[in-house]
């Protein structure tokens, strides 16, 4: 059961009613729950996906969008590996709130977190209020790592969204792993040649520590 290679924390945020819970349910259980009522606090799901030959476990924290849960949801930012910010393409106000959410992400989340912007409910067709180009521009300007339009109702891009999250996080993690190995190798090399370059090891160690304890 527990033979996964990496475990990642994915946190979904965004205004109430943009369809966060439906996205997660569609992805984890393959169902679109009609008449889904507002989430209370934080919902939690686990799903294992495959990236290449590696099993990746995604821990998905689906937060409530309503203001009164804000202090609870804020506590999840810091340890998140990826934050998925969702808005509703058929609801301009949910898009207008994005800067506010971005502010939260910047002040609480770790700097290297994977940021993903999602415009949900593209199935609404004529009711669309936010054109795809506007969403994409916003994502570019604000340095999101990825932008995607989805529909939990007809399953457009839902799997792709989470696969992207898993793939990108796995690749990042692999690079970090390699770098750590490189540091280790450097450290042993320099130490065997003894004496002088102790400071180099120190620096490597400090860097290593600061990557581990993302502050």
């Amino acid at each position: 059961m527990e033979d996964y290679k990496y475990l990642f924390k994915v946190v979904l945020v965004g205004n109430a009613g943009v369809g966060k819970t439906c996205l997660v349910r569609k992805f984890t259980q393959g169902i679109f729950p009609p008449g889904q009522s507002a989430t209370i606090g934080v919902d939690f799901m686990i799903k294992t996906v495959k990236v290449g030959n590696d099993k990746i476990k995604l821990q998905i924290w689906d937060t409530a969008g309503q203001e009164r849960f804000r202090s609870i949801t804020q506590s999840y930012y810091r340890s998140a590996h990826a934050i998925v910010l969702v808005y509703d393409v058929s609801c301009q106000p949910s898009f207008d709130c994005l800067p506010e959410w971005l502010g939260e992400i910047e002040s609480y989340a770790n700097r290297r977190v994977l940021k993903i912007l999602v415009g949900n409910k593209v199935d609404k067709g004529d009711e669309r209020e936010v054109p795809e180009r506007i969403g994409r521009d916003f994502s570019d300007v604000n340095h999101f790592d990825y932008f995607l339009e989805t529909s939990a109702l007809d399953a457009t891009n839902v799997d792709q969204l989470f696969e992207q999250v898993a793939t990108r996080l796995t690749n990042d993690m692999k690079i970090t792993d390699e770098r750590v190995h490189q540091y280790r190798a450097d450290a042993t090399n320099t130490s065997s040649s003894s004496g002088g370059p102790i400071k180099l090891i120190d620096r490597a160690q400090t860097q290593l520590n600061s990557c581990c304890s993302r502050q």
Partner: peptide, 15 residues
């Protein structure tokens, strides 16, 4: 949820 949030905040302090 308050327990989880408190654990989150506590580990943030530790780290």
């Amino acid at each position: 949820d308050s327990v989880c949030a408190t654990i989150n905040n506590a580990t943030a302090l530790l780290d």
